[in-house]
Amino acid sequence: MNLRHRITRIALIAALVLPAVPVAAESVLLTLTGAVTDGRVELTRADFEAMDWHEFATSTSVTDNRPEFRGVLMRDILTRAGAEGSHVRATALNDYVIDIPVADFHRFDVLAALYMDGVPLSPRDKGPVWIVYPRDDHGILADIRYDMRWVWQLVALHVQ
């Protein structure tokens, strides 16, 4: 597949997908439950916008090159939700479930990415939220045990 073909394709997909994703400020992107403030915290896109944003480029195990990711830090989300626990059980739109130690978020700058290469992540790709580890900054992260924690289509975190 040559480059030109790919670009045409991406443009086509973008034209089809983007109108289908309502960028509604009040729609809930991420729901936190368990050991958080009042047992349930819902974060809307507006909540995300109000937080500190970070970005970095990293290689991933499912893409070529090093995409640029933009979003908020996982530890900031947990702080904001008043989370108190050692693990979070992350659940994705596609029913993928995995436990992640909270220590990861303090040891590494783990991102809850909303943008890849400047394009908003959509549920039709890996959105709305993709947990991204700074894989290239720490050799230890280039490992299947960490790759499993890169949850895409993240919709819920249960803190325990």
Binding site: V62, T63, N65, N94, R124
Partner: peptide, 20 residues
């Protein structure tokens, strides 16, 4: 719509570099 989106995301994944 949700199932449609998720299936679409799976097909998108298959088109990603390493998977392709």
């Amino acid at each position: 719509q949700t199932r449609f989106d998720v299936l679409l995301s799976r097909l998108t994944l298959l088109e990603g570099g390493p998977q392709r």
